[in-house]
Structure formats: C-alpha cells, structure tokens
Design a protein around this nucleic acid. Structure first.
Lengths: 144, 144
DNA sequence: CGGAATCCCTGAGGATACTG
DNA sequence: CAGTATCCTCAGGGATTCCG
C-alpha cells in the first residue's frame, strides 16, 4: 500500500533554526516536517484540490468533475492526505444518497495563501526562466 | 474548470487567477509555468542543492559530499535543471584537473528565500499537522 | 454517491561503469 | 575532477471493478 508512509511516525526531529541550518532530509534522524509540506507542493493533485476547495466546500464527485483529469483513486487519496494533515475537513451527511462534503480548514486556507504567493512568484519570473531555458537550449543544441 | 461561477473564487492577487486558470497541465502550447516552480519545490534534491548553494558557490564533488545521499546522476541532473532555469550558474575553470563551480543567480537566491519562507510556515504549523495526524490515525485504527 | 481493492504500466531515480 | 550512458528496480498513479 502506498497510503501509509513508514517515516510518518512521530519523530523528534530538528528544532531551532531550520531555515538557516538547511533541510536535513537524511532519514537517519527522521523525516523533516518541512519535507512534508514541500512534497505536498510537488503533488499537483494536492495543489489543485486545495486551490479548488479555497473557492468553497465541495462534494467528492463535484471535485472530481471540477478538476477533470484526476482519477477517483487520486482524488480520494489526496483528500485523505489533506484531511489527515488537517488541511481539509470531511463532513458526512447521512442522506440518501450519502453526501460527503470537503472544505479547507484554517490551516488549509493558510497553506492555500502560500500557494498563491508561490504562483505569483512563478508568474512574475516566468519570462526570465523561459528566456534562460531558451538560451540554454540554444547553446546546447548548437554545437557545430 | 468549465462551469464554475467567477464569484466563487475570491482571489485578491493576480496569482490566484493564474492558479485557477493555468493548472490544466495540458502541454498544448507549453506547460504551465507555475507548475514548473511547484515541481521544483517537490523535488527534494533541487531544494537541497539550492539551499546549500545559498551558503555560497561550490564545486560538483563538494556538493556531492555536502549533501551526501544524492547520487552523482541526480546531482548532475539537478544542477543542469537549475542552470537551465537560470537559478544557478555554472563556471568552468580550465585548470588541471578541471574545476566547475556552481552558484546561485539572483533568481536562485530569490527562490531560495521563498523556500525559507515555506520552511518557516511548515515549521510553525508542524505541531498542528502532527496532532492532526495522530488524531486521524487514532480514529482510523480504533473504530469501535 | 463515495470510496476501497485490484491490475498493470510508466518513469523517476539508485548503482555501476566508462570518458574527457 | 566532472560528468555521461546503461541497467534495473519499485513505487506512483491511471483504469477498472465492486461494495456501503
């Protein structure tokens, strides 16, 4: 199974100046909590779900339809991760048929705000990055 | 992403628009630039290399030794990506033996600063996330 | 409707070996 | 020293199916 992360157990990891000291990713002394968050950013589905939930609560299939491209497997998995981390909340309505509503928690909204910041940075520097890539590719491909 | 109400997404920043509109990942006319940056964050090696280079320029094997755990393959690959994106610079000294020095560019330093911010957020909310996980795991395993 | 289980395939990434 | 190329593994994730 992939749902369970072996290193996800409680680890007395680094404290103090994480930023200045750098990221200790060596799993020798346990997984760095910072790594977790960064992984969530790298996960496209998590990002999409979070950003979408930022627009308000939504039900499972509503999310599935809205994101379009995500498989029910990934959606369920992503939602469970978010819920486990306390970024999203899950509310079950015992109706017929059963409805489950997902929503961002305060923590989730806080995280979503940081996502927006990152996106802004990316958007701002997109031209520079593109230019750099073009220059790099030109220099690499042009060798004769 | 088709029939959602514009008012539903309350985005004060320009990035919000980018995120809401550009996460389609369809590489029709190019991949979303925001996705690129997020991927870089998700890449543990990129993060490590960037954060390490933030401490000053370093040579290939110096980085390899410093990061320890990274394979030469991943290091070379990561450095090439960073260089291509204009986040890091590569300087070759035609000495014997040849020395190659890597350093962060202004763009790279800017990015590194954002990494630090993210890390700070993660560190700050680490207790909440951990608590949430513990509660979730307890509720999942113990259901009677 | 919401979700868990199964199958299978792709590719990220480690280890190793070889060049400049 | 600073890479590149090759092989191989194994986990991420899509498609499908079944259950509450």
């Amino acid at each position: 199974m992939d749902g369970r992360t072996p290193e996800a157990v409680v680890e007395p990891v680094i404290a103090g100046d994480v930023v200045a000291a750098g990221y200790r990713l060596d799993a020798e002394d346990g997984v760095c909590p910072v790594r977790d968050v960064l992984d969530r950013l790298g996960d496209a589905w998590s990002v999409l779900v979070i950003r979408h939930l930022d627009g308000g609560p939504a039900r499972f299939n509503a999310l599935r339809r809205a994101i379009d491209g995500i498989s029910q497997r990934m959606l369920a998995q992503t939602l469970r991760k978010l819920e486990r981390d306390g970024l999203a909340s899950r509310t079950v309505f015992p109706t017929t048929p059963p409805q489950v509503e997902y929503a961002l928690t305060d923590l989730g909204r806080s995280f979503s705000a940081h996502l927006a910041q990152l996106a802004q940075w990316a958007f701002l520097h997109q031209p520079a990055i593109r230019a750099s890539r073009r220059a790099y590719d030109a220099a690499s491909g042009d060798d004769d």
